[in-house]
Write a protein that binds this DNA or RNA. Structure first.
Lengths: 332, 332
DNA sequence: GGCGGGTATGTAACCGGTTACAGTCATCGG
DNA sequence: CCGATGACTGTAACCGGTTACATACCCGCC
């Protein structure tokens, strides 16, 4: 009801004590007389007092917020990641402060700079920035953990092990008897996209050197993949498997094949990457990445770093697991 | 590089000016000599200075952050909502500060209290709280906008028009020749769930008074709906349409029907609510809610309110649109 | 009775910005 | 030549917490 909310001095006055005592009670400090504590709590209740977070931040230099910088805020990947981040953050009394970031390196730097003084640490996911841009954008002197970022060894980093994932899927496709696999790659500058593309070439060269290993340039979008498949069909290019760099493209491919009346998995197998929830429903074979767990672990690590108990920065690679479903093998 | 980052006084010293001038330049104030401005900017650049957000908040009583309180942080609904929120927020220079909230009214109050002094406004979505709990939890004196909350007329509120949506879908099912429609309701205390359930009863009573209008108690979970459908089949209950309170349950029902070898939509039609991305892939008929737009509009309104230009609080209802797909009508 | 030591409390400086108010200086009209 | 006016800049108080340090008090012991 009060026009302006109560301050610690109001509470002190109401309790006939000094601000120091009030502060001590509120922070659960050691030496306070039980009676004093009671008087303070009573006054707090009576005034409906809530400490001002900005003032507290200013004097303690801690905000209890952690910045989360992401390239885009949509899709399953984002929501799963946030879920993990929030779980870990709120377990330790932190709030996630969100910021989306657009492709540009300069804008990325601004987004991060704007968080200075607002957060105690930064969790950054920037698969679209190269190492130099990233290094330039990251603020100095702020605990930072990276997720899916390019080479940067001054900070702890989490990465999906794309190479291992691609290898597992290619092995699976070959084991299913596929010989002519087409890879649909993701956005050109994207780290995951290029790792997956390169791994595909290498693994094919190693495991099936005599087979073609065609690669089409996609962009992680469903519609694009559909179009590419239609072109393949129109050009009469032979193939018996499509391995898309992510699930959305795999679904686009699937749709295009079905519309063309092509039997999946009979004539063509389809595989994706990420295991978005959709995949299970559509029985899409894919590589499962524990995104929620990734978010939680990255956040845990960030909090350790902010609280000064963390070992040296390192890479942590998460190996995805093969989810072999109906689009690569007939159910029997 | 500096151990501790530069303050405005460091900048003032470096530029041989007073803090007031520096502050004026940084805030784009009126009266500053061009030369002065240049000296300040030069010093800022040299020192790599970024203003401390906490200090600024303390003296201006504005944080440029807005609190987003949500019941859970997963699924498409969440990511779409956040997408809209972030788009509107960053367009106006605000950061979303996230907090998930568990069912309990007391915990909800704590979650919101913890945001006091950290945010300039609050966007709350709490479909699981009743009006009294909600009123108790909301902090006073902080601009607030509600999304999908129960009756509360002191704040601006956005709501999905469940009644209108249910009516559209029931009309559609009847138009498709369905006569024996079963509704699978959502979680008991949930606002959307009960509105959809009640609307179903009413609309059926109005449009098809002679037909049965069976209602089963579900919980928004896919598995539960599957089980309920299996029970219907086991008990030989006649029905030719399932209208689930959300898409996930519709999908569970769909799966159970397919496993039982029942032709959809031939023998039984299936419909959901929400239009999650999955729905399109599985050709599920459903009601489309523009969640992204909802988030953006709610945020815009909140910002207007925070900046003191907003008309009286009111309700805004968003009418969902019918997405008639393959599970209610044979493709022809 | 005086003194050491522990406990409980108060005072005031400080965190890093913003801004009201007070100055300084040059210009200009009378 | 003086005062007024306007353009620019500086000083210091203030926002609301935290906390180092000082102080007051009570106890037990020699």
């Amino acid at each position: 009801m009060a026009k302006t909310s109560a301050t610690i001095r109001d509470v002190a006055r109401a309790a006939e004590l000094s601000v120091a005592s009030v502060s001590r009670v509120l922070n659960g400090k050691d030496n306070v007389h039980p009676d004093t504590r009671e008087r303070v709590l009573e006054a707090v209740r009576a005034l409906g007092y809530t400490p001002n977070a900005a003032a507290r931040s200013l004097s303690t230099a801690r905000t209890h917020a952690l910045g989360v910088v992401l390239p885009d805020l949509h899709g399953e990947f984002f929501s799963e990641l946030m879920r993990g981040i929030d779980r870990a953050a709120s377990a330790h009394g932190y709030f996630p402060l969100l910021s989306s970031m657009h492709a540009d390196g300069v804008l990325a730097g601004q987004a991060m700079a704007a968080m200075r003084g607002r957060v105690d640490g930064l969790l950054v996911m920037a698969p679209q920035l190269d190492a130099a841009d990233l290094a330039a954008a990251l603020p100095t002197g702020l605990p930072t953990v990276l997720v899916n970022c390019q080479g940067e060894d001054r900070h702890h980093a989490f990465r999906v092990d794309n190479r291992a994932g691609v290898r597992l899927m290619v092995e699976h496709l070959l084991a299913c008897g596929r010989r002519n696999i087409v890879h649909i790659a993701g956005i050109e500058d994207n780290l995951d996209a290029s790792e997956r593309r390169d791994a595909f070439s290498e693994v094919m060269a190693e495991l099936a050197p005599d087979q073609p290993a065609r690669i089409l340039q996609g962009d992680f979008q469903e519609a694009t993949a559909g179009r590419l498949v239609q072109e393949l069909l129109a050009d009469d290019v032979p193939f018996d498997a499509i391995f898309a760099a992510n699930d959305m493209m795999a679904l686009g491919a699937l749709q295009a094949l079905r519309e063309a009346g092509i039997d999946v998995p009979g004539r063509v197998a389809v595989a994706g990457f990420d295991d978005v929830p959709l995949a299970r429903f559509l029985s899409l074979s894919t590589m499962r990445v524990d995104i929620d767990g990734l978010g939680a672990r990255a956040t845990e690590r960030l909090i350790e770093e902010m609280e000064g108990r963390a070992d040296a920065p390192a890479f942590e690679r998460l190996t995805p697991g093969l989810m072999a479903r109906g689009t690569t093998q007939a159910s029997n």
